[in-house]
Structure formats: structure tokens, C-alpha cells
Computed example of a mutant assay.
Amino acid sequence: MDTPLYEQLYMHIVHEIHEGKLKSGDRVSSEKELAEQFGVSRITSKKALEKLAEAGVIKRIQGKGSFVADVHPSNLEFMRQLEERPAPLIHAQDRPLIGLIIPGFSDEYGLKLLQAMEKRSAQHQCDLLIKRTGGSKEEEEHAIQLFVNLGIKGLIVTPVHGTHYNAELIRLVLGKFPVVLVDRYLKGIPVCSVYTDNRKAAQDLTLHLIDKGHQNIAYLSPPVENTSALEDRLLGYQLAFTLEGLKLNQDYCLTNITGTRTGSWAEDSAILKNFLEQNIDVKAFVASEYSVATMLAQVVDALGKKADTYDIVCFDSLNDYLGKPIFTHIQQDEERMGEEAVDLLISQLYGEAVPEQRIIEHNMIIKEQ
């Protein structure tokens, strides 16, 4: 891995002291001045000054700035050892490449996440490369290989849905390559992941319907196997019944909705039409995804039923033309998820330890009646 930019700044200041250009008590350039001088971010210059202070090379005085510390023999030896290492020049064009691999993005989910990542990457003086996989494991493997061959320094991934982990991704993780997962995690695999507490979120949605008087509540989802977000949402739905002391009818759990993966809704529409006709007591639904909720609403309309006949809740809903939510839904904090993912990846590039889990708070948006 190339020398991090903050370490290059660090070495530059050590060199200035060693050459006598900066002496004990002299003021060192501020974070802002260093950032402008070398074309790096304030985050980078701040980290360089913090590391110098930790090493005892400079003293940072709040409200006044940073100053060269008294040169004790221990510091002289420390700086002599550092001077034995080459101090590469810093150039604005030395911006590391990082990659983002994501199944796709849309207005209801993913667009804000992407925008936040692009903005945060620029703040870190990194360039973000993006590859959409369309939910294909083969495309995901190809994207990983492509990005590694292009020389990326770190990778952010939203893994595709599926029953098997991607071997290329596992190889990177086990090889200690900087990786952050977004929106889901891999069970049993030690990799930094940023995601919503999907279990709690689905539980909140289900409890909302129970509080409205519903007891016969169905759950709609694509196949959940080995997709942590979907597994946790199903579990949250089930736990809500346990908390309320209600009996859960497993026949109300439909986890075979495949239209979001295949793009064909004909079979799903038939399944839902049959379910509605066979289970007339079910008047409430928890949909694991917005597209599933909209498909259900279309089936309800096709059956000639009024829209308010059923209570439908979901994740990541859009608003109508008046700016009001179409469904009561869980609103994930995409902006913070994106920022955290980039920050945690950059920390890995600096060689810092990062947590395996970073859970981002969610909100429940209630549709007005």
C-alpha cells in the first residue's frame, strides 16, 4: 500500500524540523494552511498534526495553534530514525481510488446513499468508482476483479441477494483488504458492516399495525436465505407477535415474492390475488420492500377493492405528488450510512482498527389517514 497522505504530511514537517527550518517554539502551519498548501483534505492535515502531537514533535494549544516542541534527545533520535525513510512528495493528483459495488439504486432507496458516498469521498480527497451488478453474483465477482486490477485501495459493497457468499469478496476480507459492507452483513465473516437495525425496524412496523387493532397480519418478502437484511426483517415481524402474546400464523408469511429479482411480476400477482381471496380476514401487510408494497396495492386495485381496505406498511417508501408518504414506512438514514461507510473505509486505509458493526438509527414515517 502506498504511503498514506497524512503520513507524507507528517514526514514533511519532521523534515522541516530536522533541517532547522522549524525550531523549538516555532508555529507550525494550521490544518487549513496545510490542506491548501498540499491540496489535501482538512481531515488529512488534522490527522497528520494529531500524530505529530502524539509523538511529542509538536504541541497543540487550543485557540493558538500548533508549535514545535522542545527538542529533547529522545525526540532527536526519533526524528533521526524517521529521516532514514524517504519522504515522498505530496501531490493533489495522488488521490486514492476506492470502489463501490451495489446491486442498483432508485429514488426510494440508494440514490441518497450514493450521493452521500460521493460527497464524503471527495472530502477525503478520494475518487469513487461505481459499478452496478443488477443483483447478479457473476457481475459482482467481475466488478471486484475489475476494481482490484484498476488499483483501488479499498472497497464498499452491498452484496447481492443469494444463498452463497461471493468467493471473491470473502477472499478480499480474509486477505485483510480494506472492505466495508453497506445495508447488510455476512454471518460468521469478520468484516466491517454499516446497516439499519432491520429486526427492530420490522418489529416497529408490525407493532404499529397491532396497535391499530390488527391481529391477522401477513408478511411479504423475496426469498430471505443468506440475505441478512431480509432475514432480520422477517425475524422482527415474528418477534412483534411474541412481544404482544399473539399467535403467529406461518401461512401468512409469503417469502416467495421474486419479481424484485426477475423483473416479472405476473407470478407474484397471481400468488397475492389468490392469497387475498383465500384469506379475507387478513387486512394488514408488512412488505419488506417498497416495490413489493406497490405491487400488492396494484393487485388490490385490480380486484376492485378500495385502497383503504388494507393497511400496507413497508421499507423506504416514496411520497406522492403532494409530498405525502404513499405508505407508512421505515425511513433508513441513507446519508449517514453512506458517510459512515466511507469514513470507516478511510480509517482502514490509515491502518486503524474499525468495528465490525455500525448500526444506523431509522425513523418510522406514518402515513396520514
Rank of each mutant, 00 (worst) to 15 (best):
T44H: 04
G151Y: 05
K131G: 08
A48M: 03
S24W: 13
V71M: 14
H18C: 10
Q369A: 15
K306D: 11
Q37P: 02
H214P: 10
S24I: 09
A297I: 06
T294I: 10
K283Y: 02
F67M: 07
Q357I: 08
V313R: 00
F78Y: 08
V354Y: 02
E244P: 15
E231F: 12
L207H: 06
Q203P: 14
I217D: 00
Y252K: 07
V160K: 05
I330N: 01
K273D: 09
R336Y: 15
K23S: 13
V182L: 03
R27E: 06
L114Q: 04
K212S: 11
A92F: 10
L235C: 13
L318K: 10
R42Q: 07
L248S: 07
A284Y: 01
R95E: 08
F275M: 03
K46M: 10
I189V: 13
I326K: 04
P103D: 02
V194Q: 01
G175E: 02
V157Q: 00
I13Y: 03
D301H: 10
Y165I: 02
V354G: 05
I189K: 04
N216V: 10
N166C: 15
P4L: 02
E50M: 02
L113F: 10
E352G: 04
P73D: 06
E277K: 15
L128K: 09
S24Y: 12
K273N: 13
C192Q: 08
D251C: 11
V160I: 14
